[in-house]
């Protein structure tokens, strides 16, 4: 005797939750892209991107002169 399969209609809350999660994911993705873009703009503008790193950095000392 074969197994009888029952298909039920999915609760609409699943679809809502999926849409919401997809949107949050999309926003996070765009945020990462934006931060990357800002970094590229700052670097190509010649901004100093080095900072104190618990060790002497000669390039930082040269810049402060």
């Amino acid at each position: 005797m074969g197994v009888k399969m029952v298909f039920r209609k999915e609760h609409p809350a699943f679809a809502n939750r999926w849409r919401r999660n997809a949107l949050v994911g999309g926003i996070l993705g765009l945020f990462v892209a934006l931060v990357f873009g800002i970094t590229i703009v700052k670097l190509s503008g010649g901004h100093m991107m080095e900072a104190f790193d618990h060790a002497i950095r000669p390039s930082l000392l040269e810049n402060s002169r």
Binding site: R8, E10, H11, A13, F14, N16, R17, R19, R20, L23
Partner: peptide
């Protein structure tokens, strides 16, 4: 599964 789904009223919409 749908049977386990408990509606906690978290149907907050994006809007």
């Amino acid at each position: 599964s749908n049977a386990e789904f408990i509606d906690r009223g978290d149907d907050t919409g994006i809007r």
